[in-house]
Nucleic acid binder design. Structure first.
Lengths: 113, 113
DNA sequence: CCAACTGTACCGCGATTGTCGAACTATCGC
DNA sequence: GCGATAGTTCGACAATCGCGGTACAGTTGG
């Protein structure tokens, strides 16, 4: 299949922010950041049930905005966080977001929205 | 009028990111960060022409996500970046985003999208 | 080869978003 | 009070989003 990924210098912060301004995608990034090998279904399972076609949509958004690599390998797609590219282009951004997500989880988890 | 602003600990990073995942709102934050007193029309003028009702929408998004204070003062609304609250809750986030926006502006301005 | 498995493509749906114009409210200066 | 000014509210609109279902394509193990 071979997906189109933006080069490092084609990444735009606006796209990154709007991609991560979504709970599901932010959760995906947190999972990928935690390390380990991941394919689509493994993330999908960690998140609880979500339709595969829905996740395909989220993969595309994350991929197009330059946040993840998605590499076909056999019948799976390996998912990798583009931490080096993001850190190089936007130093401190990813760490701030990830630790921010942890902050929210900590003391603002249960609110009526 | 008196607008409803979220408390510092009610701010959610997901809202902040999706609020700033928009060029107009990101530009607004950059303007506010540059310092000085701002009301709605002054920002609107700096941005070039945009309908006032459109900006009212953006003010609400920025306000609801906890990024700005909007304080009625006479017949104007003073706009202030909530830098202290954002820095307290998400250390480094705002700086990373602002300098990231500067990065994008620098060497990725002209691309077909 | 064939069945199971991994994931995408495509279509449709309701909800949200970004934009604007028009009408309205509130305040200021005279 | 009157006109100008600042900004909101409301309604409309096209575009996009998030989600799921169904169908399809490539890979693997027996």
């Amino acid at each position: 299949m071979a997906f189109r990924h933006p080069d490092r210098d084609q990444i735009r912060i606006e796209d990154v922010l709007s991609a991560l301004g979504n709970g599901v995608r932010l959760a995906v990034v947190r999972i990928l950041d935690a390390g380990g090998e991941h394919n689509c279904t493994s993330v999908l399972n960690t998140l609880g049930i979500t339709a595969k076609s829905t996740m395909t949509h989220h993969w595309r958004v994350l991929r197009d905005s330059g946040i993840i690599w998605q590499q076909p390998s056999g019948r799976e797609n390996l998912l990798v966080l583009r931490r080096d590219d993001l850190d190089a282009r936007y130093p401190g951004l990813l760490d701030a977001i990830l630790s921010g997500a942890r902050t929210d989880e900590g003391h603002a988890a249960a609110r009526p929205r």
